[in-house]
Write a protein that binds this DNA or RNA. Structure first.
Length: 608
RNA sequence: GCCCCUGUAGCUCAGUUGGCAGAGCAUAUCCAUGGUAAGGAUAAGGUCAACGGUUCGAUUCCGUUCGGGGGCUCCA
């Protein structure tokens, strides 16, 4: 039941999860600062609305809140606008700000509000939902908006250089597809010009690291519209990465007490009816195919298959815990508009596992999973990790005692590992609570990767049991977990985190041997072969290009080690090194170089 | 799916206010004796996403379809 791919692209909300309650008390200063910037952003939204009112008479207003990196306002324009109109709006906003207008708050009755906004259908709808006597309006210049506030005192507190209109986008009124589509104008806004510029630089950096761009440049993967969007083709270099990653993943799983399973890609409708997926997950499953007289579905999840294996024999409490892992490829329907490179796809391989255990093992098991996950993230070079604990929603299955015990074990595990965490009250799936881990990447973005989820649904539906000490049949606990999430999505995040310059052990090409002139091709080949025989991915660059061009090419490919060879090196069985960092070291004995590279590979070192 | 933007050579992009399509990189061939981020020349490479409409004529304008991008959670 893992919902690994239901994760929104990073630009949304990466500074903050959907959190209803925080364990951490912001200092008063921070809280004050947050309030100030919110006030500024929200006030700017009003200024934008005023500007739009000036430029597009007859426009209808939706809402205009502050958001993580600025603000937006939703409008219904009399005629469509284009990106070109943004600069005119921005200009008008600056003019308004210069006028030094006060924001004036007034409280009015519901009836007065309805009268005031009689031409504004969306405002009227909002007023409907408000209580009498608590209705406030804010006015600046000739613009009046229904608004709770607070706002800055005057437009003079707004800095014309610290905001920038971003894009126009469609957005349904109140996020509801059945309601009219409004035109949303997004803007960035910060306390100061410098902060805005920092943020814009971060966005540029993100663009530079974009995995779709690097995937093409580094020849790692592709997608093909004519063969089906949202389906990933791993090229030889992406394949090298994946094989290395999977090999390590398997080794680690065996070391951590897991067994590895392989299960089919399709299953009869019986399986999905029993699991309940045809009830609550059907919208994400592909249409069935008919084989003989039966309907088969392509799997969107691996769990029912693992349960089938569990049920091939009876299990004593002595057999538990079972830790069963699979790199299972699943297919899920995603609407075409949400597909995004490797991050949101229609077919992907989960690094899935199911832990089946007794009630008194559950705490240790959760702790083990968490530890395992953290150790993997450490090896992969992600240092900052935060946990999000999602608790029981209103509608749920499973006995309350189980939910409580599950939650306690999740909390204890987080505490023992000393992780920062936030609680998402009621945010769990109907079938169980979960911990999600978000990792922070090199430019500060958070990505949700690991998920550890209890499942109180399937063990019931499949009637999973074990025989306890007292000889009675009991229901085991089942936990789904994915550490990397999916290999596709992980690859995308990894590419962006390292901007393509992976640690040596995961680099498709580890060493480029570059002769300074064609007369040293033979020695270059010898060097490459020597390294290859030791298990290093080395290639001799023997084209007719000049050395400079080869270095540039290797550098662009982020190859960690460039071994430059010429007369001196050939005579002394040496190499001269250029690292992808630009550092140079000359006259290194070939043996010494090989040993160094092997050590970096074996240690999964993050440096060269 | 819906809104806006977008689709020209393998890649990155120009361009035609409607008149038989261009550059750089990559590729191929040739020349070039070269020490740490692109040596030079020549050639090959495109039904300008697909289909339909307007027009003497469409890659260009219009429509539809199929992709790609940004959004569609933030509640006055």
């Amino acid at each position: 039941m893992l919902q690994l791919h239901g994760i929104r692209p990073y630009m949304k909300n990466f500074m903050q999860g959907r959190i209803s309650w925080s364990f951490f008390i912001c200092s008063m200063i921070e809280r004050r600062a947050n309030m100030d910037i919110e006030k500024i952003r929200h006030s700017l939204a009003h200024v934008m609305a005023e500007a739009v009112q000036h430029l597009f008479p007859g426009v209808k207003f939706g809402i205009g809140p502050a958001i993580d990196d600025g603000f937006y306002y939703d409008f219904l324009f009399p005629q469509p606008i284009t990106n070109d109109d943004l600069s005119a709006i921005e200009k008008e906003m600056r003019r308004i700000i210069e006028k030094d207008q006060d924001f004036i708050r007034t409280e009015i009755s519901k009836q007065e509000a309805q009268e005031l906004f009689r031409d504004q259908p969306f405002k009227l709808e909002l007023i409907e939902g408000l209580e009498e006597g608590k209705i406030s309006i804010y006015k600046q210049g000739d613009f009046v908006d229904l608004c709770r506030g607070p706002h800055v005192e005057s437009t003079k507190e707004l800095k014309p250089s610290a905001f920038k209109l971003k894009t126009i986008a469609g957005a349904y009124w109140r996020g509801d597809e059945s309601k009219p589509m409004l035109t949303r104008i997004y803007a960035y806004a910060f306390e100061s010009k410098a902060k805005l510029e920092d943020y814009l630089h971060m966005l540029e950096e993100a663009e530079r690291r974009d995995h779709r761009k690097l995937g093409k440049e580094l020849d790692l993967f592709s997608t093909h519209e004519e063969a089906g969007p949202g389906l990933i083709y791993w090229h030889p270099k992406g394949g090298r990465f994946r094989v290395e990653l999977e090999n390590w993943w398997r080794d680690e799983h065996y070391k951590n007490g897991y067994e590895i399973l392989f299960t089919p890609h399709i299953g009869k409708s019986w399986l999905w009816e029993t699991s309940g997926h045809l009830g609550f997950y059907k919208a994400n499953m592909y249409a069935p195919m008919k084989i003989d007289e039966d309907e088969y579905f392509i799997k969107p999840m691996n769990c029912p298959f693992h349960i089938m294996i569990y049920k091939t024999s009876s299990h004593s409490y002595r057999d538990l815990p079972l830790r069963w892992a699979e790199l299972g490829t699943v297919y899920r329907y995603e609407r075409s508009g949400v597909l995004h490179g490797l991050m949101r796809v229609r077919g992907f391989t989960q690094d899935d596992a199911h832990i089946i255990c007794t009630p008194d093992q559950i705490e240790d098991e959760i702790l083990e999973v968490l530890r395992f996950s953290l150790s993997m993230w450490k090896t992969l070079g992600f240092k900052e990790i935060k946990a999000y604990l999602a608790t029981r929603p209103a509608d749920s299955v499973g006995e309350p005692e189980r939910w409580d015990q599950a939650l306690v074990s999740l909390k204890k595990a987080i505490d023992k590992e000393g992780l920062l965490y936030e609680i998402d009250e009621g945010g769990g799936a109907f079938y169980g609570p979960k911990i999600d881990l978000k990792v922070k990447d090199a430019i500060g973005r958070e990505w949700q990767m690991t998920t550890i989820q209890f499942d109180f649904n399937e063990p019931e539906r499949f009637d999973m049991v074990f025989i306890d000490k007292d000889g009675k049949q009991k229901r085991p606990y089942m936990v789904h977990r994915a550490l990397l999430g999916s290999l596709e999505r992980f690859f995308g995040v990894f590419i962006e985190h390292y901007a393509g310059a992976f640690p040596v052990w995961l680099m498709p090409d580890q060493v480029a041997v570059i002769p300074v002139a064609p007369s040293f091709d033979a020695y270059a080949k010898t060097v490459a072969k020597f390294l290859q025989e030791k298990g290093i991915r080395a290639k001799a660059m023997l084209s007719e290009e000049r050395m400079n061009a080869k270095i540039r090419d290797a550098q662009n490919q982020r190859i960690p080690y460039m071994a430059i060879v010429g007369q001196r090196e050939q005579e002394g069985s040496l190499v001269s090194l250029r690292l992808r960092t630009g550092d140079q070291e000359s006259g290194i004995p070939l043996e010494v170089f090989a040993a160094r590279v092997l050590e970096k590979i074996d240690m999964k070192s993050l440096d060269l």
